[in-house]
Computed example of a mutant assay.
Amino acid sequence: MSALLETRALSAFYGDFQALFGIDVTVAPGEVIALIGSNGAGKSTFLKSVAGLLRPRSAGQILYRGEPVGGAAAASIVGKGIALVPEGRRLFASLSVEENLLLGAFSKRPGRWNLQSVYSLFPALRERRHHAATALSGGQQQMVAIGRALMSNPDLLMCDELSLGLAPVIVREIYAALPAIVADGMSAIVVEQDVQLARRVSSRFYCFQEGRVSLAGVSAEVSDEAITQAYFGAVA
């Protein structure tokens, strides 16, 4: 099966600082993969590069459905079917829950996700749809951020640190929605600090360390010891 997303020797820079060094990642249609690694390992930089928020060295370093998309504008990337749930949620404080959700639909891609399907997934948002989005609890704000991304009807959903700053019970509630989200064959990339949680929700994983892939494998098969070494050990 051909890859939905493929990166080939992806490099990324913040000015003169190189954050990614030759990253090779593939995501198949309908697959959920996890990116793990410590803070500063390059996970968020990878998602930003794919989402069009950070320009790679060449367009061919990022392929989506076989098409070079590296460096394309973020709005164009959304229109092609890639949506990012950013770290820290990044909601618009001046807008209501429903207005934040509707912003996600600007690309007008067809699909099953609309206000009603998002409210069915997260019933708490229906009750608070006219409230200011940033007045909600952290967990409910995360639901808004996920719902906003889903409103673009993506084929690839990228989630950056969904559990950050949330209580464990809320994290379980957020991740409990993932199977329903990908039930129609959507692919997902999940960046998660909790390694065991990341392995439970994904079929494969990539461990990043110092801007490089230090280990990749099937989530249920790789040993804890190997992951610990890849997570904390020096990159060769």
Rank of each mutant, 00 (worst) to 15 (best):
136 L>M: 09
2 S>G: 08
131 H>M: 03
23 I>V: 15
182 V>A: 12
55 R>W: 01
195 V>F: 08
218 V>A: 15
21 F>D: 01
184 D>I: 04
61 Q>R: 08
221 E>S: 15
109 R>L: 14
64 Y>K: 05
218 V>Y: 13
13 F>G: 04
208 F>R: 04
28 A>G: 11
96 S>E: 09
9 A>T: 01
195 V>D: 02
4 L>N: 09
45 T>A: 12
69 V>S: 05
108 K>M: 08
136 L>S: 03
55 R>H: 13
141 Q>P: 04
7 T>G: 13
127 E>T: 03
224 D>E: 09
86 P>E: 06
35 L>I: 11
188 A>M: 05
103 L>Q: 06
18 Q>I: 03
84 L>H: 12
217 G>C: 07
222 V>A: 02
202 S>T: 07
180 A>R: 15
77 I>W: 03
32 V>R: 10
235 V>N: 06
60 G>T: 12
56 P>D: 03
1 M>Q: 11
15 G>R: 13
72 A>M: 14
133 A>F: 07
236 A>V: 11
11 S>K: 13
127 E>F: 01
11 S>Y: 08
95 L>V: 12
208 F>I: 05
231 Y>D: 02
151 M>E: 00
30 G>D: 02
184 D>K: 09
191 V>C: 04
27 V>C: 10
81 G>I: 07
231 Y>V: 04
52 G>D: 08
9 A>N: 12
146 I>W: 00
13 F>T: 11
26 T>H: 09
207 C>H: 01
133 A>M: 09
204 R>Q: 11
81 G>N: 11
108 K>C: 12
231 Y>T: 11
40 G>T: 11
212 R>C: 08
115 L>E: 05
208 F>Q: 09
226 A>L: 05
11 S>A: 14
83 A>W: 02
84 L>Q: 01
52 G>F: 06
167 A>M: 03
59 A>I: 08
168 P>Y: 07
136 L>A: 08
16 D>V: 13
70 G>T: 04
112 R>G: 15
86 P>V: 12
199 R>Y: 02
137 S>D: 02
156 L>D: 06
106 F>E: 04
20 L>Y: 07
220 A>R: 15
75 A>N: 12
168 P>D: 02
221 E>D: 15
80 K>Q: 12
75 A>D: 15
233 G>S: 14
53 L>H: 14
125 L>P: 03
195 V>M: 07
110 P>F: 01
60 G>E: 07
170 I>M: 05
116 Q>M: 10
150 L>I: 02
